[in-house]
Design a protein around this nucleic acid. Structure first.
Lengths: 160, 160
DNA sequence: ACTTGCGCTGGAGTGCGCTCCAGCTCCTAG
DNA sequence: CTAGGAGCTGGAGCGCACTCCAGCGCAAGT
């Protein structure tokens, strides 16, 4: 993890890499990288004399940021909004912060939901483990219910 | 396909509710509920004499479980696998546990990733806040870099 | 000079997971 | 008896986010 990003005058072209390497380093497919650019999720990437893309370290950083936003479920349209605020301007900085804060809040909600859902799955596992341990299959379980007059633990838990 | 889980006549029909109420209680649309059933993500739901669906409390519990699995990103095909193991059988209990454990493990990974990504977004916010506080726009920031010889915090953080 | 390989573009195609709809049946209220 | 409303079915349609492809250009190796 040695990413000494040196950005001195000439570095942006010296350290620039081709699309293949960016793909390998990010895990995004080459097609996806091109698609993101066309779709306005990335700024226009520099080209070499042969017309091929050359990703500067800064550009790669940008790609990674977009990757994080997408991976966390930000819709393409919103990423585009974020990107198209451009790279300059105090006012735009404020808009960007607002957008990111909204997203961060959504993420917190999703994390809470995910924790709860994970617990539900775990409980479900425990429930089946219990049935197995007791050598009980579902029909036997149903019979138990009729006697006890309530639903199995798992079903109760997931009910409102 | 009649693998309907029949509980003692009394409890299942007494507390059963219509599709509208299930929709309201779960937040899944009526269309989605029907689609899930057709797609094999739910067992066949009991019908009233008029042919309408009557969801027993047990069925509703099942719906909620499927909802959790879907919400946590389990693909429809896998939920179907889970469901089609049927409601009976010790061996099937084992398969279900295996499936759920795999899913739970995936969830843990996703939670870790999500935490990391959330931190990245937070750092990005902090970065822009800093720029604003210092009254610096991005072009000025780039100039700074040339002098300092390093990239903005945000870009560094998101690099591998 | 030619072949091999990578990358380019614009556009078509794909997979997933719903969502919408037409045309029907059944109940209930007036 | 009629009208309205909910629910039913099978199937078509849709939005999203890629993914694939044909046909081309450049550049290095043989």
């Amino acid at each position: 993890m040695h990413n000494v990003v040196r950005v001195s005058a000439s570095s942006s072209s010296r350290d620039a890499v081709g699309i293949r390497e960016v793909s390998e380093r990010t895990g995004l497919s080459i097609d996806t990288l091109r698609w993101y650019e066309r779709a306005g999720l990335l700024p226009d990437i520099d080209r070499g004399t042969d017309g091929r893309r050359r990703y500067s370290p800064l550009a790669i950083g940008f790609v990674r940021l977009v990757q994080v936003l997408r991976r966390t479920g930000m819709p393409v349209a919103e990423v585009r909004k974020f990107v198209q605020l451009g790279t300059v301007g105090l006012e735009h900085h404020r808009s960007r912060v607002a957008l990111l804060e909204e997203h961060a809040a959504a993420l917190e909600e999703r994390m809470a939901q995910l924790r709860a859902d994970h617990a539900t799955v775990q409980a479900e596992i425990a429930h089946y483990r219990d049935l197995i341990a007791r050598g009980v299959d579902f029909s036997a379980e149903l019979a138990e219910q009729d006697v006890r007059g309530d639903a199995p633990a798992a079903w109760r838990r997931v009910s409102s």
